[in-house]
């Protein structure tokens, strides 16, 4: 399991573009050929946001939105000092990246691949959808996206270029008035493989429905992280029902960030 450590790089990338694309949300394109060539959907990078400063000290883990032709794209939300500093970077600035890190999505044969994203959780799904379409062009692909309102449906145009997209918003301003989980129950029939990323309650809902319908389901988790490479053991998630010492916790950076839903929630 996991990606060989030989494929990790510490690379100084060059910012090509950094723009506001939604409420408090930015999209950054970085020339980063080594990491881009090695990246798999669902993996992440640790981004240095403060050049030559110790505050903020730690890198920020961000999932890979797209990796194509030497260019790595990140979709990120300004939630604190680090990501605000990142939003101020300009074209031509250097940015230190560590990656690609972690265990990404596993793309197997499936009659129907279904991506379910909520809020900023759509970030890793664009890379995944692009790769599913490229590697398995004959297999069906459907994308379900949810957000609080219309302007929080991120990267919509990009998703619509690769597969049919169905929408759900909490306020009904676009698509189904309700949860993306409801959309999943309505739109998907028959055998399917589910890939989901978004707020934890949403992913738990998706995983629960997938279990009822006996759909395989992969979930992408997010936690606080210090190193991103399995050294600090800080990014733990507790697995309910596993009390043995060895299996009680998993580490998002190395065991994940993508897990089979059944590994985490029962």
């Amino acid at each position: 399991m996991g990606i060989s450590v030989e494929l990790q790089y510490l690379e100084t990338g060059q910012v090509l573009e950094n723009a506001l694309v939604g409420p408090d949300t930015c999209r950054m394109e970085i020339r980063s050929p080594k990491i881009t060539a090695a990246a798999q959907p669902g993996q992440f990078v640790m981004v240095s946001v403060a050049h030559d400063s110790t505050d903020p000290l730690l890198r920020r883990p961000l999932s890979i939105h797209l990796a194509d032709n030497g260019v790595l794209t990140l979709l990120y939300r300004m939630v604190g000092k680090g990501t605000r500093l990142m939003s101020q970077m300009k074209k031509g600035d250097e940015i230190s990246l560590l990656g690609p890190l972690g265990r990404g999505f596993q793309i197997h044969d499936a009659a129907h691949h279904c991506l379910v994203g909520g809020g900023l959780g759509v970030a890793p799904l664009l890379f995944l959808g692009t790769e599913i379409k490229r590697r398995r062009p004959e297999e069906r692909l459907t994308i379900l996206l949810g957000g609080r309102s219309r302007n929080e449906l991120l990267a919509l145009d990009d998703f619509q270029k690769i597969a049919p997209v169905h929408l759900a918003t909490d306020d009904g301003s676009s698509g189904l008035h309700g949860l993306v989980t409801d959309l999943l129950g309505q739109e998907i029939e028959g055998p399917a493989t589910i890939y989901t990323c978004g707020p934890t309650p949403m992913m738990k809902g998706v995983a629960s429905l997938a279990r009822q319908r006996t759909w395989p389901c992969q979930v992408s988790l997010e936690t606080m992280m210090a190193c991103g490479m399995g050294a600090c053991l800080g990014c733990t998630v507790q697995r309910p029902g596993f009390d043995e010492t060895e299996k009680k916790y998993v580490h998002v950076c190395k065991d994940g960030p993508v897990f089979e839903a059944a590994e985490i929630w029962r």
Binding site: D55, P56, L57, T223, M224, G234, C235, T236, T245, Y249
Partner: peptide
């Protein structure tokens, strides 16, 4: 097994 999460938090020039 170690402690329950969250286990790490960043502070000013430290963690």
């Amino acid at each position: 097994p170690g402690n329950p999460p969250p286990r790490v938090v960043e502070t000013a020039s430290g963690m």
